[in-house]
Design a protein around this nucleic acid. Structure first.
Length: 685
RNA sequence: GGGGCUGUAGCUCAGUUGGUUAGAGCAGGAAACUCAUAAUUUCUUUGCCGGGGGUUCGAGUCCCUCCAGCCCUACCA
């Protein structure tokens, strides 16, 4: 078989939230496919990236008083940690906010311009003057123009009517709570209709799409003129500015898929290869794995862009359904909106990989994670049937190793070896549930074999030593075949099997030849059963997270009432976390200003004599001259750091500090003031 | 309203181009065994293949229609 050159992508997760079990359907599905192709000896490049642009990231950065770059860096790190935890084997993980991407966007954009596909149109849109940004539909609420219901979304109402946000009565910006104004702005559009002939042919006549997807495209889009695609957004927008249209930015869905190429480019630079060897090479296959929510972008816009720019078209767009948990949409309240991170704290990633594999087919059906079924399936299939094969026979072989000659096995090994092609085809077609069924059928043939051969009986009869070794040699090799077939799904199991037998699993074809005459290592547990308590802990933790988030959400609603500016936190970000022990070292005390006076020759200082009760006093120089008159200070209470190491200053020893809030301006100094009743000397904690 | 998809044992699903009495795993019932993470093996119960009509010697499989469910989308087919 000639090695194929295969580029694999999984959809880019948005840099605005954690990876959860729903995301993982796709990344596990894609990873299994990529690992399968590698195992078959093909040249595979599996790339992904964080999707970083758009309004949502911009708003979040503003809200948190950080730069967009900080937000996306943090997110990328978390995403990659989660993916690694589930064994997702990306060759490169990039970001759409990269120089490689900016450059590729520019190049592709130019070809689209040159092809005459871009036009400019003025559209009316709501503008939030306070935030200085145009408002996407989902950021506007208002009164429905048809039925008069208040508090409806920007583009449709509960009553079933749809409208443009500018038609709303009393629109309100969800960003600032202010009333947005209608403004005109020029947007750039790609005239997709010009590509109709190509898109019709590509979606309907090729085999790049699943049949139901081709039908969907036909029914949903091709029946009418393809609408112009609004590809630009006016400032402010977090993204790439369009080089030949200053002040406009590419809409996030323009640069996101190009991120696949940018990530490839990064990998190429690290590995001395060329982008065009992957993206302009007719011998290279491109496989995109996506969810059914983004069909539109990957089957119309993206092929249109690639075609125009002269790059490879997707060989296949492989589309999967969504995840439900216990038959319902994932819900934070019910504890089923489980984050990848939370899962990993309690359960084995291999269990989820296997469960998803056993559920995934080539079609777009949603898959359900029924938690009882999950436990039963993993326990029965993997631990009881597969791993148990090794567990029950390995120790009989420890003294002798594997037989040198292949004994009579009733044709079992060959039968499994012969099923390799059918299993491989199922993997190739993303029909993993079929692959798992075929593999488990082989396990169901192996267990009766052992039962009939009864090695535990043979062991008791001295003259049956050879037979014992032979029977277990068969059993272990049947097990090894299963581990090879399961390797794309369970890389850890494959690795442990390699260790047990002193022969690493690296190729699909290893399932064709039994291992003979080699020693065997001590058997170690390879997988353990799922403890239902761990599942319960996982959902409990998810619920607790949700409660914490809900109260945080309620708090920020409260904060919104006061409209406090985030600017101070932006200017002076919070410092590193400290422990209680760190904090308690600082001895804060209530103190009375006994005397306050100007310091001759000092521009900013006042000299204070602070009383801590009785005769205990401190002499403190405080830089508060710009905001306070000494006469106003005498007699009042302040909070001071009472155990600060004395410091010699130009005008004398300073034996502490008074606490004050301060802004950027010299006059913005506000001494802390204990409430009535506090007495000098009392500790502040 | 339009479009896409699904409906097979209690549960999760297979059923290839229409062909002999409709399958698997799990769950349920009975027994055997003890090497193994109480795992395994053998036997066993269960189906108006959503309803109705049609094509055919023959339909779960093709056609029509109705019903139910999921998803997408909107006054445009």
């Amino acid at each position: 078989m000639n090695p194929r050159k295969i580029l694999v992508t999984a959809a880019l997760p948005y840099a605005n939230g954690p990876i959860h079990l729903g995301h993982l359907v796709e990344y596990i599905q894609t990873d299994i496919w990529a690992r399968f192709q590698r195992l078959r000896g093909h040249e595979v490049l599996f790339v992904c990236a964080d999707d970083t642009h758009g309004t949502a990231i911009m708003l979040r950065a503003q809200k948190e008083g950080r730069s967009e770059e900080e937000v996306i860096a943090e997110s990328s790190e978390a995403h990659q940690r989660d993916f690694a935890g589930f064994g997702v084997s990306f060759d490169n993980y990039g970001s759409t906010h990269s120089e490689e991407n900016r450059k590729l966007c520019g190049e592709i954009w130019q070809t689209i311009r040159d092809a005459g596909l871009v036009k400019s149109k003025e559209i009316e849109q709501l503008f939030d003057a306070e935030k200085g940004t145009f408002l996407a539909d989902r950021f506007v609420t208002g009164t429905c123009p048809k039925c008069g219901k208040t508090d409806q979304a920007g583009d449709n109402c509960e009553c079933g009517h749809t409208y443009a946000p500018v038609e709303l009565i009393d629109p309100i910006s969800a960003l600032s709570g202010t009333k947005p104004e209608v403004r005109n702005a020029n947007h750039l559009f790609i005239e997709l209709e010009q590509l109709r002939e190509f898109l019709t042919d590509w979606t309907q006549n090729g085999d790049s799409l699943q049949p139901e997807v081709a039908n969907y495209i036909k029914g949903q889009f091709l029946g009418d003129d393809l609408r112009d695609w609004d590809i630009s957004r006016p400032a402010q927008y977090f993204g790439f500015e369009i080089p030949d249209s200053p002040g406009d930015y590419w809409y996030v869905w323009f640069d996101a898929p190009i991120g696949y190429m940018a990530s490839t480019q990064q990998w190429c630079e690290k590995n001395g290869q060329k982008l065009d060897d992957w993206w302009k090479n007719p011998d290279c296959e491109v496989h995109h794995f996506i969810g059914k929510d983004i069909i539109y972008f990957h089957t119309l816009f993206w092929p249109g862009m690639l075609k125009t720019a002269g790059y490879n078209l997707p060989t296949k767009v492989r589309i999967h359904g969504f995840l439900t948990v216990d038959g319902e949409k994932m819900s934070k309240r019910k504890g089923t909106f489980v984050k990848a991170e939370t899962y990993l704290k309690h359960l084995d990633p291999a269990a989820l990989r296997y469960f998803y594999a056993s559920k995934l087919g080539p079609r777009l059906d949603d898959i359900d994670l029924n938690l009882e079924e999950f436990q039963a399936k993993v326990d029965t299939d993997l631990v009881n049937k597969v791993v148990n094969l090794a567990s029950r026979c390995a120790k009989f072989l420890k003294p002798t190793g594997l037989s040198a000659q292949w004994p009579d096995d009733g044709g079992l090994f060959k039968q499994a070896a012969d099923s390799a092609d059918e299993i491989a085809q199922a993997y190739e077609d993303c029909d993993y549930n079929k692959a798992m069924r075929l593999i488990l059928a082989a396990a169901d043939r192996a267990n009766p074999f052992i039962e009939n051969a009864a090695p535990w009986v043979l062991k008791k009869e001295e003259d049956k030593a050879q037979e014992l070794q032979d029977v277990c040699t068969v059993a272990i090799n049947l097990f090894r075949q299963l581990a090879i077939f399961l390797a794309p799904v369970l890389p850890d199991l494959a690795e442990k099997t390699g260790e047990l037998l002193g022969d690493p699993i690296t190729s699909w074809d290893q399932a064709q030849t039994p291992l003979l005459g080699t020693p065997i290592n001590k058997f170690k547990h390879m997988m353990k059963r799922i403890d239902p308590k761990d599942i319960a802990k996982m959902t409990e933790e998810t619920k607790a997270d949700q409660d914490a988030e809900a109260s945080a959400g309620a708090m920020s609603e409260l904060a919104a009432k006061y409209n406090d500016s985030p600017q101070h936190l932006i200017d002076k970000p919070l410092t590193e976390e400290c422990t209680f022990d760190d904090f308690i070292k600082v001895d804060l005390r209530v103190a009375r200003v006994l005397q306050a006076s100007h310091v001759e020759g000092a521009d900013k200082l006042l000299q204070l004599t602070l009383g801590l009760g009785g005769d205990e006093q401190r002499n403190v120089f405080a830089g508060i001259k710009s905001a306070y008159d000494p006469a106003d200070l005498e007699g009042r209470l302040v909070v001071m750091v009472a155990n600060l190491k004395p410091r010699k200053m130009r005008f004398g020893m300073s034996e502490g500090m008074v606490c004050a809030a301060g802004g950027p301006e010299a006059t913005e100094i506000y001494l802390l003031d204990p409430d009535n009743g506090a007495q000098p000397g009392q500790r502040v904690t």
